[in-house]
Design a protein around this nucleic acid. Structure first.
Lengths: 351, 351
DNA sequence: CTGAAAGCGCTTACAG
DNA sequence: CTGAAAGCGCTTACAG
């Protein structure tokens, strides 16, 4: 088709020739208009217009040594990663900062399971990753690239810049609430990594487990045990459904199901509804994240609010500071969390 | 911090000097290994490794004349655009194609309300837009850029490549279903453009309205009229809430609320729930899109399934075909839709 | 198999 | 105010 039959590109050289001015002047006409005479500028702009000139982004960026885009490295394949509302929210937060800074946001899917390849070819000035451990081989690729980067929900150590909440405390908070209502028989659904990268780093999972365990211990409970069973599920709706079915199959049935992500909780609740098990009548369900759906659901999901949007914004702002070179020495932001009490959790039924 | 003190970049010139080979050979070592001797390759790779060489993406892309990324132009600001699950799904569809092609996906937010500026600086090999009219000034910017582009939910005409469903037929289908159940008093919630770009092009809105009207006419109804009131709402949860309140304030109350997007319908349902108006007991609600939430909701939302994911995939595939130069002459894909009947619509109550 | 050289299209010190 | 020229770091015909 016509638009594929690209006539040779119109360059500043063409404009220079046509207008009688130099390439320098042409460039100035666009980028530093005040450095040339009105007459020259007018003439050049007019010739540019008539020739249908459009600056070459590739050449411009190369010359300016910047991409004008920041990268968001997906923890796993698009279908899994972007279907998680929590991740979506984080992306939106990052995106809103990009919008302000007039940068584009480059979403980098892992190419054919090869993260390093994806990282290598990413045309970005900085990168945000999710759930990456300091030891992850992907980190080396980014370091090699020599661009600033920040990890969200990763390991807040190892010299990596990171944005996190206090996962241990947050997990403890919700568990304390559940114990306070009288629950003593739990199903804990932790996160299992799919592919080679979990949605959240294993250190985050570890810290949440610590939080749960600490508070459980104060009530004399141990995990895993007869009273507190441990399950694992991918961070997805279908993962939640499967986990829900597993819990239902086990006996005795817990009075409360605690998940490490809302999307998993939604899946669990779907299974329960289909099985005719009333929530919270027969069993309570607690989540983690506070995705928008948590409040739309009926019953509303009791969960830990970790402001995904804020995490994205904070990471974005830190990253831009680093790109500008006026970044903080040690970037380790901790965002506050909050227990959100809705209807999916009630005191356990008397037996 | 250390990583900001960039020592001068290690380039192929450095490797050439250190290894005793030419820049050509160094380049071959990485990109056409079989064009040089084993010995040379080994030596070069080893020197590269020891120097911590990492190819410069900017230079590489410039030389290769490609960005290795395709752009997704957001119809409006990040918070609005990306919070709409329908748009999210489209993005995911496009993204999944990118992943296969080993391309990144550049999300382009409108810079400070300036679309053209955003388009101009976008470093992409092709572009996908949503809801763009052929006459939109943004289209000219893209044309100037001389890269292939496709619009989803835009105007399937004007020589633009596009991906759509049969909006008129789809709107007619759901209206026919509602009339069939006996509804005769409707609130129709159309889409109003926020900012200067609506979420869906006005031509799409027009075609849906045509579909509604045509079928309404067959039942002797006219829109707008006493029986069929017309409202307008932005494509968002909050927009839906506001519209819901408006509908509730009017009398007589319709037996069925018909929206042009599920996200709006969800907002409407929230308002109804808070007002204690049972759905579908007192009033039925119908949507458009079939976003994932539509099935999670209680009651499930009766709506038109327009496969957002498929739209994204189709647009992505067409775009890559165009980028490769083996694109179709006239790209105008029409995806099939489907009526999805759930619980949010019931026959009207007897009075 | 190897290398000198041109080229991708801009930006920008520098000199006039 | 204006322009010749270097430079950004690669890739790739072309010649040997």
């Amino acid at each position: 088709m016509a638009e594929r039959m690209r006539r040779r590109r119109v360059t500043i050289a063409d404009i220079a020739r046509e207008s009688g001015y130099s390439k320098t002047s042409v460039s100035f006409a666009f980028n530093s208009p005040r450095r040339i005479s009105d007459e020259a500028r007018k003439k050049i702009l007019q010739v540019a217009e008539s020739l249908g000139y459009y600056p070459d982004t590739l050449a411009r960026n190369f010359s300016l040594q910047r991409h004008h885009s920041i990268g968001f490295l997906l923890p796993h394949a698009i279908p899994d990663a972007m279907q998680n509302p929590y991740i979506q929210q984080v992306i939106q937060g990052v995106g809103s900062v990009c919008q302000e800074e007039e940068y584009t946001l480059t979403v980098i899917p892992p190419f054919g399971k090869s993260l390093s390849k994806a990282i290598r070819s990413a045309a970005v000035d900085g990168m945000i990753t999710m759930g990456m451990e300091a030891e992850h081989r992907g980190v080396d690729s980014i370091r090699m690239k020599d661009i600033p980067f920040i990890t969200i929900d990763g390991t807040p150590s190892g010299g990596m810049h990171s944005v996190n909440i206090d996962d241990r405390q947050a997990a403890g908070d919700i568990m304390a609430y559940l114990l306070g209502l009288g629950h003593r028989r739990f199903a804990l659904i932790s996160v299992s990594g799919e592919r080679d990268i979990p949605a959240i780093s294993s250190s985050v999972i570890d810290r949440r487990m610590e939080g749960y365990r600490e508070v459980l211990a104060s009530a004399g409970l141990v995990c895993p045990s007869e009273s507190v069973r441990l399950y694992h599920s991918p961070c997805s709706l279908s993962g939640g459904r499967t986990a829900g079915a597993q819990v239902l199959a086990d006996h005795p049935r817990p009075t409360c199901i605690v998940t490490m992500s809302d999307i998993t909780a939604l899946g669990v609740m779907q299974t329960l509804r289909e099985a005719g098990v009333p929530v919270p009548g027969a069993v309570s369900v607690a989540g983690f994240d506070n995705i928008p759906e948590a409040s739309i659901m009926v019953p509303g999901l009791t969960t830990v609010d970790q402001p995904a949007w804020d995490k994205g914004v904070t990471a974005g702002q830190l990253l831009f500071a680093m790109i500008r070179g006026d970044g903080p020495r040690a970037g380790r932001a901790c965002i506050s969390h909050r227990l959100v009490i809705r209807e999916s959790v009630a005191p356990p039924q008397q037996l």
